[in-house]
């Protein structure tokens, strides 16, 4: 499955958001959005990826 994660192209075996996070090596305090929509942590395992999907993986960062 070809998707982008944080704007970078990936070719993954994953079919869900949770699997994509694991396959791409993301751990820790994170939030996810798929094609611009928030995906709560509890729904990552059941949220399916589609070809060309854009996954955003965000983490705590400095801010004003």
């Amino acid at each position: 499955m070809k998707i982008t994660i944080n704007g970078t192209p990936h070719d993954l075996r994953a079919t869900t958001v949770a699997e994509a996070l694991e396959e791409a090596g993301f751990t820790g305090k994170l939030a996810t959005a798929l094609n611009g929509d928030f995906v709560p942590a509890g729904l990552r395992a059941t949220t399916a990826l589609t070809e060309g999907a854009a996954l955003e993986v965000l983490a705590p960062m400095q801010g004003g």
Binding site: K29, A31, A59, M61
Partner: peptide
């Protein structure tokens, strides 16, 4: 303290 969310590039967990 105000904070933000940005694409995870490795520094997010230390900052947290």
């Amino acid at each position: 303290a105000t904070v933000s969310l940005r694409r995870e590039t490795g520094g997010g967990q230390d900052f947290w």
